[in-house]
Amino acid sequence: MTTQILRISSKYLKPAFVVLSLVILYRGHNEPGGGFISGLLAASGYVFYMLAWNVETALKKMWIQPVPLMAIGLLLALASGIIGVAAGEPFMSGQWITVLNITLGTPLLFDVGVYFTVIGVMLTIMSVILEKVDQWD
């Protein structure tokens, strides 16, 4: 069941979810949040969109499809670990640099990997499940 109210609100809420998720991802290392939570949040935006419209429309709105997104996320997570190896330390040893007073490091990259993976996973699951529901309508 979709209604106009749902559709219109979803248009505005989806970007809000995504932006907020990015904020939470960024702050995650210091404040509540992190890759998993922000990933779920971003995915929820799309899930709401799927509920309001349908799966196809929602997936069209995405730049990268869920399954590659999963792979990219995992790849980022893996890469963040391998950077440590490249630096001659054990796998997943954190490497940090400070740019313009912002501390960046491989654990943050890892978190980004988690973020993407979670979005990919959630949307893969949700899209195939909601597809069936769409078929009923």
Binding site: P68, A71, P90
Partner: peptide, 21 residues
């Protein structure tokens, strides 16, 4: 301290990723 021990985990993970793509 050898990263060798990680390979049995990393190799399949990388394989999975390539296979997914």
């Amino acid at each position: 301290m050898s990263n060798l021990l990680l390979l049995p985990v990393i190799v399949p993970l990388a394989t999975v990723l390539i296979l997914l793509l």
